[in-house]
Design a binder for these strands. Structure first.
Lengths: 203, 203
DNA sequence: GTCTATATCGGGATAGAC
DNA sequence: GTCTATCCCGATATAGAC
């Protein structure tokens, strides 16, 4: 299926996503989106009534690329440390595919924190199951006394942060070597779960 | 010294920082900055020629609030694990004072990655000294074989991430309880260095 | 230095032909 | 459905009085 055959609406959404994600809502221009989609501005307003509506569609779509699908993972009867390994490596892998999504989502949410409340209801995401399992394994004595909420935030942060801070890290830590940074990300699929699991060992 | 006595230029800079940091370069409005400073738009252009110039001044200033001053810490002959404890707790403390700076700096840099190159030269920040010390302590057998670059990125990420992702975390992990989230941040001054140092223990 | 008034322009949105 | 032409507002920037 070629670019032209995909239907105008899909092409617009794709173009809009590209531009919005890179420039943000405020920095994006309808003209640029139109150019990217190979059409004109009027047609954007024909399909989506306003820039706001178009953004809303793109943002909803991007949220799916930000929240990992955890249902399958959480329901398995895998021990928690194995789950951590799977979660982190797969989440890093997932962000690698669309490395600019996290900054986009986080920035727009920080501009408009109220937006998150509505979204949450829809996605229905919820860390309770994970927290339960950590509590359980603590009782069984396989984990040390790390606070589950700190653990969760650490896990997510260790996955996402390098993508959000890429320009600084690439420049300062890697001297501007883009490929070295890409290899670094690749390594993290192993070093991050290792790091976390070491931190969880009982003495 | 009251608000009015601070000199117009300083008041403008302060107002501009507040607005730019919260709304970003693209979302900020000169009118809002003028209102915040208690003057009119024309005066903004009298002191700083353009929005761009004003932003540049604010951004330079913000960088100082983003990069911790490490010179004193790094030069001490403190063991690395103690340095990690000091660095993380003080860095979290520092961001607590201006919790929106990280998102601001990271977002603007991701919009304009080339900007970082120029800035780096001026700040002269550099992780080499830290990496050297890690290598040294590894040889001496007090650290396990964690990769120094991963360690640095982990340290920084664990400090910064909760502030960048605050809306999501506060909503999902803390059910919208702002004060609970503030306490959580306070806890991290201890849990983060603990977490890292556990991960660095030799078996 | 500080103000009011205004120029200028870019960008979102609409009208209307095809 | 898709285009061209145009409207109109908001935002940066400037002119000029005080």
């Amino acid at each position: 299926m070629s670019e032209k055959d995909k239907g105008t609406e899909a092409r617009i959404l794709e173009a809009a996503k590209k531009v919005f994600v890179l420039k943000g809502m405020d920095g994006a221009r309808m003209q640029e989106i139109a150019d990217e989609a190979g059409i004109n501005k009027a047609l954007l307003h024909y399909y989506f009534r306003s820039k706001d509506k178009l953004f809303e569609a793109v943002f909803r779509d991007s949220m799916a690329g930000f929240f990992p699908n955890l249902l399958g993972l959480m329901m398995q009867k895998t021990p928690i440390r194995e789950k951590i390994r799977i979660f982190t490596s797969e989440y890093i892998q997932m962000i690698q595919q669309n490395p600019h999504i996290p900054m986009f989502v986080l920035h727009e949410l920080s501009l408009n924190p109220r937006r998150i409340a509505e979204m949450i209801k829809e996605t229905g995401i919820n860390p309770d199951f994970f927290i339960q399992q950590i509590m359980q394994e603590k009782k069984e004595g396989t984990l040390n006394d790390t606070d589950p909420r700190h653990l969760i935030v650490n896990m997510i942060g260790l996955c996402i942060f390098p993508f959000v801070a890429r320009p600084i890290l690439e420049s300062i830590v890697f001297g501007g070597d883009t490929q070295a940074f890409d290899r670094f990300i690749e390594e993290r699929k192993f070093t991050v779960p290792d790091f976390i699991n070491k931190a969880l060992e009982k003495k």
